[in-house]
Design a protein around this nucleic acid. Structure first.
Lengths: 125, 125
DNA sequence: AAGCGTAGTATACTGAAGGGAATAACGGAA
DNA sequence: TTCCGTTATTCCCTTCAGTATACTACGCTT
C-alpha cells in the first residue's frame, strides 16, 4: 500500500489564525459582527433603508436581521415607525445601545486572544 | 416620529456566547474544526471513503477538503494511494498529525477563552 | 487474468441565503 | 386632500455549497 503518492502544487504557507464570535439565541444567531454594525448604522442614519444602503445590503435582508434581533431580545433593540415626517424611521433603543457596547467588549477581548495565540503559530516548520 | 412602535413575539433570552476559529491559507480556509475531525477519521479508518461515511459527508466533499489541505500545506497532510490491497487508502503524514495536535491546542485555548468570557455575559438585564 | 475497493474526476441535482423589484399601509407636511 | 419616504411584506431569480451518481485508473490478491 501507499506506493504511489499523489502530489500536487502547494503554496508557501502564509497561514493565519482567524476566528469569529457571536451570541446565539433561540432562533440561531442573535448578535454577530454584521448585525452590530447594522445597529450602528441604524443609529447613525435613523432608518433601516439608509443603514442597509450604507452597508451595500438589501433592505429585505437588513429588515430580517433587525426582526431577528428584536424577536430574540427581551425588549426590542430597534424601534421603528411608519409614516410621518420623512416617512418614518428607526432608532436604537437603550437595550440596543447596550448590546452594541457589550458586543464590542467581547470582540476586543477576542481580538486580543487571537493576537496572543498567533505568537504560538509556527505551523509545520 | 416614532409614534407607533411595532412589537412582535419575543423569546426568553437563553443567550449564549459562541465562536469558531480556523487557520487561513492562500486559498481560504486551511484548517478548521471539520477538517481536523476529517483528518482524525482518515487516520482512524485508513481511507477517505470511510472517513467521509463516518461523518455523513459525501466522498466528493471529503476529497476536496483533503485536496485543499494538501495544496496549502508545505508538505501533504494526507498521503493516499490507489489500487493494491484493499483498493488503496489514505493515511495521515507526520505533518498531518502535527496539524491535528496544533489545532486542538488552539481550540482548547479558545474554549477556555469563551468559558471565561461567558462569566461576563449578563446580557441586557 | 480477473476481481476488488479505493482514489480521482466530471456532471447534474438540491436547498438555503440573499438580491431585486413590486406593493400596501402609514402619518406628518404642504 | 395630496404628496412623500419609510416600514413591512411578498414573489421571483441568482448564486453557491454540498449531495448524488456514474465512471475510469490503479495495483495487490487470488
Amino acid at each position: 500500500m501507499h506506493k504511489k503518492t499523489h502530489v500536487k502544487k502547494r503554496a508557501k504557507s502564509p497561514q493565519e489564525l482567524r476566528g469569529r464570535i457571536w451570541i446565539d439565541g433561540k432562533e440561531g444567531t442573535f448578535l454577530g459582527y454584521g448585525r452590530i454594525v447594522l445597529l450602528e448604522m441604524v443609529r447613525e442614519h435613523g432608518s433601516i433603508t439608509k443603514a442597509a444602503k450604507s452597508m451595500g445590503m438589501s433592505y429585505r435582508h437588513a429588515w430580517e436581521l433587525v426582526d431577528s434581533m428584536n424577536s430574540q431580545a427581551r425588549r426590542p433593540l430597534v424601534e421603528s415607525s411608519t409614516g410621518g415626517k420623512g416617512g418614518g424611521g428607526a432608532r436604537l433603543s437603550e437595550d440596543g445601545k447596550k448590546a452594541v457596547k457589550l458586543f464590542w467588549k467581547f470582540y476586543a477581548d477576542f481580538q486580543n486572544f487571537l493576537k496572543h495565540e498567533k505568537k504560538a503559530l509556527t505551523l509545520l516548520k
